[in-house]
Design a protein around this nucleic acid. Sequence first.
RNA 1: GUGGGCGUAGCUCAAUGGUGGAGCACCGCACUGUGGCUGCGGUGGUUGUGGGUUCGAGUCCCAUCGUCCACCCCA
Length: 420
Amino acid sequence: MAKIQAPRGTHDILPPESRHWIEMERRTHELMRRWGFEEIRTPMFESEELFVRGVGQGSDIVRKEMYTFTDKGDRRLSLRPEGTASVARAAVEHGMLQPGRVLKLYYQGPMFRYDRPAAGRYRQFHQMGAEVIGSAAPVADAEIIGVFWAWLLEMGLQGLTVRLNSVGCPVCRPAYRERLRDFLRPKLEWLCGDCKERFEKNPMRILDCKVPGCQAEIVGAPSTLDSLGEECRTHFEEVQACLQAAGIRFEIDPGLVRGLDYYTKTAFEVHHAGLGAQSAVGGGGRYDGLVEEVGGGSSPGVGFSTGLERILLALEADGVAELAPPARPDWFVATVNSDARDEALRLVTALRRRGAAEMDLSGASLKSQFKQADRLGAAKVIVLGPREIERGVAMVRDMATHQENEVPLKELYTGGSESA
RNA sequence: GUGGGCGUAGCUCAAUGGUGGAGCACCGCACUGUGGCUGCGGUGGUUGUGGGUUCGAGUCCCAUCGUCCACCCCA
């Protein structure tokens, strides 16, 4: 039979790597508890419409990266490409948004995008993210960037940079777009093909273009920041003041434009130096129009998301060897021959109520059982053979000191002796 | 989606077009009821897959799948 491989862009998470995932999740829950966020778990597929409206028709994600299918009931469904739209949908659907109430939620799980795979980019990948919904205040933006920053430090990462920008709001953005078009129109013929297209659809993306010719043409272009309306400008200044108060360093990056259509005002990304082309470990921003877009009342929000595979790659680049060391058994119960099997089973069952205990499952020789115990890093090996069982004792060997003592079985069962 | 690199044992890698190897890992033996170190031995490959060229292909050609890099985009 021909082998079946995992689909392109997907990957199995195997031991010992799965230990790192367990540890990341454990630290996430613990940190979020301290920051007062509660977990929300939403479906991995949703109506296609949710993402079309939420993430945006114009975004690359919706235009070419969604896994969309029709189910047996003729519903158009999409595997979720990101988490925020689902959180907003669930908050609206369950009436969690009441005027004056601030919701703090986090989520964690697989996301799906039909993208060409590369290092740090997969078709099924995992994100963790958090949202503050119900507050338009700058301190909410700082709360999100702050919890993200704390989370990154909790994972043990170094060499991180926060880039911050404001992309304006539906009031001031159109005005800025026009100013930018006016500036670029005389230079249009010198721009690359992609940028000529962007000129009509999304001229702000031109600022992000990597083509050297375009870079030269945009010198002196009006900055988003100079074109912010009064409200957006004040908000941006206040966010910066809050970040300074919270002790978070950042760089202003006027070229930072995010790929999801729902962002307003604050946009940010965090980059890691050791990651190559896919250097963003996460990002986010404010989305004051999203809740309304998915059918709720007007409710402002701000959030972040981070890619867990990239976090692991960044940790590797930082030389963090082990997020979580292997679990070592306290005891390995070894049998001299098969007559001791039942006693060993009884004993290992009893020991497992108090700690981690292992026994041989393959009928291996005593020597081989010691090798197993050594490989597992067991602290002690308990030897059961005819000589011991007859007298109601077991030989207990300390693997570090090589000391062996006879211990009555009764004590091993009750944990009554220090020697066990 | 565009351009390019790479697919050989579980892992990391060798093999001028001429009988596919090594290290690590795994299993066993070294006076038979005891681990790590050492020595010796062993298991393990339809060379990603399918075609083609050739007396002969891991090696050359085509296709396909996968992977990696850059672009794009982003996490």
